[in-house]
Protein backbone atom coordinates (compact mmCIF):
# COMPACT_ATOMS: atom_id res chain seq x y z
CA UNK A 1 0.00 0.00 0.00
CA UNK A 2 1.74 3.10 -1.23
CA UNK A 3 -0.09 5.61 0.97
CA UNK A 4 0.89 3.66 4.07
CA UNK A 5 4.55 3.88 3.26
CA UNK A 6 4.31 7.64 2.84
CA UNK A 7 5.49 9.58 5.82
CA UNK A 8 2.72 11.47 7.64
CA UNK A 9 4.72 14.62 7.04
CA UNK A 10 4.50 14.17 3.30
CA UNK A 11 0.81 13.36 3.44
CA UNK A 12 0.06 16.65 5.18
CA UNK A 13 2.14 18.45 2.61
CA UNK A 14 -0.02 17.01 -0.16
CA UNK A 15 -3.17 18.03 1.67
CA UNK A 16 -2.04 21.60 2.34
CA UNK A 17 -3.36 23.29 -0.84
CA UNK A 18 -6.81 21.75 -0.45
CA UNK A 19 -6.92 22.48 3.27
CA UNK A 20 -5.86 26.09 2.72
CA UNK A 21 -8.54 26.71 0.13
CA UNK A 22 -11.21 24.99 2.24
CA UNK A 23 -10.24 27.05 5.29
CA UNK A 24 -10.22 30.36 3.45
CA UNK A 25 -13.14 29.78 1.12
CA UNK A 26 -15.50 27.60 3.13
CA UNK A 27 -14.83 27.50 6.86
CA UNK A 28 -13.92 31.21 7.08
CA UNK A 29 -17.05 32.62 5.43
CA UNK A 30 -19.20 30.16 7.36
CA UNK A 31 -17.70 31.40 10.59
CA UNK A 32 -18.34 35.01 9.54
CA UNK A 33 -21.97 34.16 8.77
CA UNK A 34 -22.34 32.50 12.16
CA UNK A 35 -20.84 35.52 13.95
CA UNK A 36 -22.96 38.00 11.98
CA UNK A 37 -26.12 36.15 12.96
CA UNK A 38 -25.46 37.21 16.56
CA UNK A 39 -24.89 40.91 15.83
CA UNK A 40 -27.14 43.96 15.47
CA UNK A 41 -28.22 45.09 11.97
CA UNK A 42 -26.89 48.40 10.75
CA UNK A 43 -29.32 51.02 9.50
CA UNK A 44 -28.06 50.90 5.93
CA UNK A 45 -27.06 47.25 5.82
CA UNK A 46 -23.98 45.72 7.33
CA UNK A 47 -23.70 44.98 11.00
CA UNK A 48 -23.00 46.82 14.21
CA UNK A 49 -20.58 44.94 16.45
CA UNK A 50 -23.00 44.55 19.30
CA UNK A 51 -24.29 41.19 20.49
CA UNK A 52 -27.95 40.50 19.77
CA UNK A 53 -30.02 37.32 19.55
CA UNK A 54 -32.83 39.15 17.78
CA UNK A 55 -32.04 37.58 14.43
CA UNK A 56 -32.41 34.05 15.76
CA UNK A 57 -35.52 35.09 17.65
CA UNK A 58 -37.00 36.44 14.40
CA UNK A 59 -36.36 33.25 12.51
CA UNK A 60 -39.01 31.43 14.51
CA UNK A 61 -41.05 34.08 16.32
CA UNK A 62 -42.39 37.63 16.15
CA UNK A 63 -43.08 40.36 18.66
CA UNK A 64 -46.38 42.13 18.33
CA UNK A 65 -45.72 45.70 17.28
CA UNK A 66 -48.20 47.19 19.77
CA UNK A 67 -48.40 45.06 22.91
CA UNK A 68 -44.92 43.49 22.65
CA UNK A 69 -46.31 39.94 23.12
CA UNK A 70 -44.17 37.18 21.67
CA UNK A 71 -45.80 34.63 19.42
CA UNK A 72 -44.58 31.80 17.21
CA UNK A 73 -44.21 32.96 13.62
CA UNK A 74 -44.41 30.63 10.66
CA UNK A 75 -43.66 33.35 8.11
CA UNK A 76 -40.10 32.16 7.59
CA UNK A 77 -40.78 28.54 8.40
CA UNK A 78 -43.52 28.35 5.78
CA UNK A 79 -41.01 29.49 3.17
CA UNK A 80 -38.59 26.85 4.46
CA UNK A 81 -41.28 24.21 4.21
CA UNK A 82 -42.20 25.40 0.70
CA UNK A 83 -38.57 25.11 -0.33
CA UNK A 84 -38.28 21.59 1.06
CA UNK A 85 -41.53 20.59 -0.60
CA UNK A 86 -40.66 21.97 -4.04
CA UNK A 87 -37.12 20.57 -3.82
CA UNK A 88 -38.46 17.13 -2.94
CA UNK A 89 -40.93 17.32 -5.81
CA UNK A 90 -38.13 18.43 -8.15
CA UNK A 91 -35.97 15.51 -6.99
CA UNK A 92 -38.75 12.97 -7.48
CA UNK A 93 -39.66 14.26 -10.95
CA UNK A 94 -35.98 14.40 -11.90
CA UNK A 95 -35.64 10.76 -10.79
CA UNK A 96 -38.76 9.63 -12.65
CA UNK A 97 -37.48 11.25 -15.85
CA UNK A 98 -33.75 10.79 -15.24
CA UNK A 99 -33.77 7.08 -14.43
CA UNK A 100 -35.34 5.92 -17.72
CA UNK A 101 -33.12 8.40 -19.56
CA UNK A 102 -29.99 6.96 -17.94
CA UNK A 103 -31.22 3.42 -18.67
CA UNK A 104 -31.85 4.34 -22.29
CA UNK A 105 -28.36 5.76 -22.70
CA UNK A 106 -26.65 2.92 -20.85
CA UNK A 107 -28.32 0.37 -23.13
CA UNK A 108 -27.26 2.09 -26.36
CA UNK A 109 -24.26 0.92 -28.36
CA UNK A 110 -21.02 1.95 -26.72
CA UNK A 111 -20.01 4.43 -29.42
CA UNK A 112 -23.40 6.17 -29.22
CA UNK A 113 -23.53 6.64 -25.46
CA UNK A 114 -21.17 9.62 -25.38
CA UNK A 115 -23.28 11.40 -27.97
CA UNK A 116 -26.41 10.94 -25.86
CA UNK A 117 -24.60 12.07 -22.72
CA UNK A 118 -23.38 15.12 -24.62
CA UNK A 119 -26.97 16.00 -25.50
CA UNK A 120 -27.86 15.74 -21.81
CA UNK A 121 -24.89 17.89 -20.81
CA UNK A 122 -25.22 20.68 -23.41
CA UNK A 123 -28.01 22.51 -21.51
CA UNK A 124 -25.94 22.16 -18.36
CA UNK A 125 -23.13 24.13 -19.93
CA UNK A 126 -25.50 26.89 -21.01
CA UNK A 127 -25.90 29.94 -18.80
CA UNK A 128 -28.43 29.37 -16.03
CA UNK A 129 -30.25 32.65 -16.64
CA UNK A 130 -30.64 31.91 -20.33
CA UNK A 131 -32.08 28.49 -19.60
CA UNK A 132 -34.45 29.91 -17.02
CA UNK A 133 -35.66 32.60 -19.40
CA UNK A 134 -36.12 29.92 -22.05
CA UNK A 135 -38.50 28.07 -19.73
CA UNK A 136 -40.25 31.37 -19.07
CA UNK A 137 -40.62 31.97 -22.80
CA UNK A 138 -42.32 28.59 -23.18
CA UNK A 139 -44.77 28.75 -20.31
CA UNK A 140 -45.73 32.44 -20.08
CA UNK A 141 -49.28 33.45 -21.03
CA UNK A 142 -48.30 34.56 -24.54
CA UNK A 143 -45.65 31.84 -24.72
CA UNK A 144 -45.16 28.87 -27.01
CA UNK A 145 -47.13 26.37 -24.94
CA UNK A 146 -50.24 28.50 -24.48
CA UNK A 147 -50.16 29.67 -28.11
CA UNK A 148 -50.06 26.10 -29.36
CA UNK A 149 -52.85 24.98 -27.02
CA UNK A 150 -55.02 27.92 -28.09
CA UNK A 151 -54.14 27.35 -31.73
CA UNK A 152 -55.23 23.74 -31.43
CA UNK A 153 -58.47 24.89 -29.87
CA UNK A 154 -57.86 22.92 -26.69
CA UNK A 155 -58.20 26.01 -24.48
CA UNK A 156 -59.81 29.40 -24.98
CA UNK A 157 -57.70 31.44 -22.60
CA UNK A 158 -54.04 31.06 -21.66
CA UNK A 159 -53.41 28.96 -18.57
CA UNK A 160 -51.52 30.83 -15.87
CA UNK A 161 -48.35 28.73 -15.54
CA UNK A 162 -45.71 31.36 -14.95
CA UNK A 163 -45.25 32.62 -11.39
CA UNK A 164 -46.67 29.42 -9.88
CA UNK A 165 -45.13 26.57 -7.90
CA UNK A 166 -45.44 24.53 -11.08
CA UNK A 167 -43.21 27.00 -12.92
CA UNK A 168 -40.59 26.93 -10.16
CA UNK A 169 -40.58 23.11 -10.02
CA UNK A 170 -40.45 22.80 -13.79
CA UNK A 171 -37.57 25.24 -13.97
CA UNK A 172 -35.55 23.52 -11.27
CA UNK A 173 -36.28 20.09 -12.75
CA UNK A 174 -35.02 21.26 -16.12
CA UNK A 175 -31.93 22.93 -14.68
CA UNK A 176 -30.88 20.05 -12.41
CA UNK A 177 -31.93 17.02 -14.51
CA UNK A 178 -28.36 16.40 -15.78
CA UNK A 179 -27.21 16.09 -12.16
CA UNK A 180 -29.65 13.19 -11.75
CA UNK A 181 -28.89 11.49 -15.06
CA UNK A 182 -25.11 11.63 -14.74
CA UNK A 183 -24.55 9.59 -11.54
CA UNK A 184 -27.33 7.10 -12.37
CA UNK A 185 -25.83 6.61 -15.81
CA UNK A 186 -22.38 6.17 -14.28
CA UNK A 187 -23.51 3.32 -12.01
CA UNK A 188 -25.71 1.81 -14.70
CA UNK A 189 -22.91 1.77 -17.23
CA UNK A 190 -20.80 -0.19 -14.74
CA UNK A 191 -23.65 -2.63 -14.14
CA UNK A 192 -23.26 -6.03 -15.75
CA UNK A 193 -26.34 -6.36 -17.99
CA UNK A 194 -26.07 -10.13 -17.91
CA UNK A 195 -27.55 -9.72 -14.42
CA UNK A 196 -30.72 -8.50 -16.10
CA UNK A 197 -30.71 -11.57 -18.33
CA UNK A 198 -30.08 -13.78 -15.31
CA UNK A 199 -33.09 -12.27 -13.56
CA UNK A 200 -35.31 -12.75 -16.63
CA UNK A 201 -34.05 -16.28 -16.84
CA UNK A 202 -35.02 -16.83 -13.19
CA UNK A 203 -38.67 -15.95 -13.83
CA UNK A 204 -38.54 -12.25 -12.88
CA UNK A 205 -40.98 -10.09 -14.85
CA UNK A 206 -39.79 -6.75 -16.26
CA UNK A 207 -41.11 -4.84 -13.27
CA UNK A 208 -39.43 -7.21 -10.83
CA UNK A 209 -36.15 -7.11 -12.69
CA UNK A 210 -36.26 -3.34 -12.26
CA UNK A 211 -37.17 -3.48 -8.59
CA UNK A 212 -35.15 -6.49 -7.43
CA UNK A 213 -32.02 -6.19 -9.54
CA UNK A 214 -31.46 -2.91 -11.41
CA UNK A 215 -32.60 -0.48 -8.71
CA UNK A 216 -30.67 -2.08 -5.83
CA UNK A 217 -27.51 -2.23 -7.94
CA UNK A 218 -27.64 1.36 -9.22
CA UNK A 219 -28.81 2.68 -5.85
CA UNK A 220 -25.53 4.51 -5.12
CA UNK A 221 -26.11 6.46 -8.33
CA UNK A 222 -29.71 7.22 -7.39
CA UNK A 223 -28.64 8.39 -3.92
CA UNK A 224 -25.91 10.60 -5.36
CA UNK A 225 -28.23 12.01 -8.03
CA UNK A 226 -30.95 12.78 -5.52
CA UNK A 227 -28.53 14.63 -3.27
CA UNK A 228 -27.08 16.53 -6.21
CA UNK A 229 -30.56 17.66 -7.25
CA UNK A 230 -32.15 18.20 -3.84
CA UNK A 231 -29.48 20.38 -2.23
CA UNK A 232 -29.06 23.00 -4.98
CA UNK A 233 -32.85 23.05 -5.39
CA UNK A 234 -33.24 23.86 -1.72
CA UNK A 235 -30.95 26.87 -2.04
CA UNK A 236 -32.02 27.82 -5.56
CA UNK A 237 -32.15 31.56 -6.13
CA UNK A 238 -32.32 32.45 -9.83
CA UNK A 239 -35.00 29.97 -10.89
CA UNK A 240 -37.61 30.79 -8.22
CA UNK A 241 -36.82 34.49 -8.64
CA UNK A 242 -37.46 34.46 -12.40
CA UNK A 243 -40.16 31.81 -12.68
CA UNK A 244 -41.84 32.27 -9.31
CA UNK A 245 -42.22 36.03 -9.57
CA UNK A 246 -42.19 38.04 -6.37
CA UNK A 247 -44.66 35.90 -4.48
CA UNK A 248 -43.30 32.38 -4.67
CA UNK A 249 -40.21 32.86 -2.54
CA UNK A 250 -37.82 30.09 -1.69
CA UNK A 251 -35.13 30.09 0.97
CA UNK A 252 -32.49 31.51 -1.34
CA UNK A 253 -34.72 34.48 -2.18
CA UNK A 254 -35.64 35.07 1.44
CA UNK A 255 -31.98 35.20 2.45
CA UNK A 256 -31.12 37.49 -0.44
CA UNK A 257 -33.97 39.76 0.62
CA UNK A 258 -32.45 40.23 4.08
CA UNK A 259 -29.07 41.21 2.68
CA UNK A 260 -30.67 43.50 0.08
CA UNK A 261 -33.87 45.43 0.56
CA UNK A 262 -34.43 44.08 4.08
CA UNK A 263 -31.13 45.50 5.31
CA UNK A 264 -31.08 42.90 8.04
CA UNK A 265 -27.80 41.05 7.65
CA UNK A 266 -28.00 39.19 10.97
CA UNK A 267 -31.41 37.75 10.05
CA UNK A 268 -30.06 36.75 6.62
CA UNK A 269 -27.11 35.11 8.35
CA UNK A 270 -29.36 33.27 10.80
CA UNK A 271 -31.57 32.05 7.93
CA UNK A 272 -28.47 30.87 6.05
CA UNK A 273 -27.32 28.84 9.04
CA UNK A 274 -30.81 27.40 9.38
CA UNK A 275 -30.79 26.41 5.70
CA UNK A 276 -27.45 24.72 6.23
CA UNK A 277 -28.87 22.84 9.21
CA UNK A 278 -31.91 21.73 7.20
CA UNK A 279 -29.63 20.43 4.44
CA UNK A 280 -27.46 18.57 6.96
CA UNK A 281 -30.44 16.96 8.67
CA UNK A 282 -32.01 16.02 5.35
CA UNK A 283 -28.71 14.52 4.17
CA UNK A 284 -28.11 12.45 7.28
CA UNK A 285 -31.71 11.27 7.27
CA UNK A 286 -31.61 10.36 3.56
CA UNK A 287 -28.27 8.61 3.54
CA UNK A 288 -29.25 6.60 6.63
CA UNK A 289 -32.59 5.47 5.24
CA UNK A 290 -31.02 4.65 1.88
CA UNK A 291 -28.25 2.67 3.55
CA UNK A 292 -30.55 0.66 5.81
CA UNK A 293 -32.19 -1.01 2.81
CA UNK A 294 -28.95 -2.72 1.92
CA UNK A 295 -29.99 -5.88 3.74
CA UNK A 296 -33.58 -6.29 2.56
CA UNK A 297 -34.07 -9.81 3.88
CA UNK A 298 -32.54 -9.21 7.26
Amino acid sequence: MSNETQSPHRRWLLLTPALTILTIAAAGPLLIVLVFSFLTPGDYGGVIWKFSADAWFNVFAERDFFDETVSFSDAHLSIFWRSVRLSLLTTIVAFLVGFPTAYFIATRRENRRNMWMLLIMVPFWTNLLIRTFAVMEIIRNEGVLNSVLIGLGLIDEPIQLLFTDFAVTLGMFYVYLPLMVLPIYASMERMDFSLVEAAYDLYASRWRVLRKVILPIVKPGVVAGSILVFIPSLGAYVTPRVLGGGKNLMMGNLIELQFGQGRNWPLGAALSITLLAVVMVALVFYVRSAGSEETPHG
Binding site: D192, S194, L195, E197, A198, A199, D201, V213, I217
Partner: peptide, 13 residues
Protein backbone atom coordinates in the same frame (compact mmCIF):
# COMPACT_ATOMS: atom_id res chain seq x y z
CA UNK B 1 -35.31 -23.42 -18.62
CA UNK B 2 -32.55 -21.89 -16.52
CA UNK B 3 -29.11 -20.73 -17.55
CA UNK B 4 -25.67 -20.91 -15.99
CA UNK B 5 -23.94 -17.88 -17.46
CA UNK B 6 -20.34 -17.81 -18.59
CA UNK B 7 -19.50 -15.02 -16.15
CA UNK B 8 -21.94 -16.54 -13.59
CA UNK B 9 -23.95 -13.25 -13.39
CA UNK B 10 -24.49 -13.64 -9.65
CA UNK B 11 -26.44 -10.79 -8.06
CA UNK B 12 -23.83 -8.73 -6.20
CA UNK B 13 -26.38 -7.21 -3.81
Amino acid sequence: VNTVFQNYALFPH
